[in-house]
């Protein structure tokens, strides 16, 4: 039996929404090309990829679960320390270290996710903030393990899977970070386009209605929060593995604030926001730190204030591309062109 036209149309629409867009392909080709085209910028590129992963992980909870977090550095920092300690004491093989660090950060995420289920935005803000301060303080106090204020140094990283050695220019490092970022994005993309992801959006957009559709939000928020922590842990581990050093700075408050800015720069709630934000942020910082090395913080602040006052929506790249598309006559997927296609 062939499905009715309406049903075919519905399936086609849903398929098209989840399909990879040309812009996405373009982005990844550019990112890969950069590994070979910009040999002197590999360290900066790795930095961008790590920050992008970190911001994407924040997007999962801010953009999809609607939880305002001011303490996301907790998971990043735990991942970074875990990777450092693992390579010092267990194995210097980076992939094993990466996966274990992600798992450790994920466990922390799972344990603390129950704290963000209740209360207002403010309560969640405070809880996430508090947890990150607590962990930062713990890392600072447990100097026997973490090196205290001096951090962890002397970390040696073996070749990836015994095959690819980290080179001096950071090309292997960048390709490694990029691969992890890409894999993370593919997985996140699948999840947000699955029914699970749709239900998260529903909970965030209108929790009253979501409850009246029979969606019990708590378990789903726990799952996404944990996943987000795993991603942040990955990002932290990548930082440790590409720089061979862990400083207590990985847990600092400004890192939580920075990543929020990165995400907001790129736009919340469509996964690529973190990636785009990371590019803008890192390039901006590289440039500003040449112009005014000391007062970089002032300019971040100014960007934040301006961003909010102008209206985040208006300068959100997702909106901009949609706007460009309508201007160039390539309308966003809608029923009309689809109908033609099916006819």
């Amino acid at each position: 039996m062939s499905p009715l036209p309406r049903q075919a149309l519905a399936s086609a629409f849903l398929r098209r929404k989840a399909r990879w867009k040309p812009l996405e392909y373009g982005f990844w080709i550019l990112a890969l090309g950069a590994a070979f085209a910009l040999p002197s910028q590999q360290l900066l590129l790795s930095e961008i990829a790590i920050l992008a992963l970190f911001a994407m992980s924040l997007d999962l909870i801010v953009g999809y679960a609607g939880i305002l977090s001011l303490g996301h550095a907790a998971f990043f920092g735990v991942g970074a320390y875990a990777a450092g300690l693992l390579s010092l004491h267990l194995t210097a093989e980076p992939l094993t270290g990466l996966i274990l660090s992600g798992a450790i950060a994920g466990l922390l995420g799972l344990a603390t996710s129950y704290l963000v289920l209740r209360g207002s935005d403010l309560t969640k803000l405070m809880t996430t903030f508090g947890v990150s301060m607590l962990i930062s303080e713990a890392a600072n106090q447990a100097a026997w393990l973490t090196g205290g204020a001096d951090g962890l140094s002397g970390i040696l990283i073996d070749p990836i899977a015994g095959l690819f050695e980290f080179d001096l220019f950071g090309q292997t490092g960048y390709l490694y970070c990029l691969t992890v970022l890409f894999a993370a994005l593919v997985i996140a993309r699948r999840i947000v386009h699955a029914p699970f992801g749709l239900s998260l959006k529903a909970i965030k957009r209108n929790s009253r209605r979501a409850a009246m559709l029979g969606i019990s939000p708590n378990r789903r928020i726990v799952v996404i929060y944990t996943l987000s922590a795993v991603y942040a842990g990955f990002a932290g581990a990548l930082l440790t593995q590409t720089t061979s050093f862990v400083s207590p700075d990985v847990l600092a408050f400004h890192r939580s604030a920075d990543v929020l800015l990165v995400l907001v720069l790129g736009g919340v709630g469509y996964l690529y926001g973190g990636v785009i934000g990371a590019v803008i942020f890192t390039v901006l910082r590289a440039w500003l730190s040449v112009v005014t090395p000391q007062y970089w913080m002032f300019w971040i602040g100014l960007v934040l204030v301006a961003l909010v006052l102008v209206g985040r929506d208006r300068i959100n790249p997702a909106r901009l591309t949609a706007w460009v598309r309508t201007k160039t006559g390539r309308a966003a997927p809608s029923a009309a062109p689809l109908a033609k296609e099916e006819a």
């Binding site: 309406r6 049903q7 519905a10 399936s11 849903l14 699955a194």
Partner: peptide, 24 residues
């Protein structure tokens, strides 16, 4: 199907068909 994590929305032809039906 709401907790399906990995399969895309479009692959849920049962839900899509029924949804289209009700919308009609």
């Amino acid at each position: 199907h709401g907790t399906r994590f990995w399969r895309s929305l479009a692959s849920d032809s049962q839900a899509a068909a029924e949804a289209a039906d009700i919308l009609e």
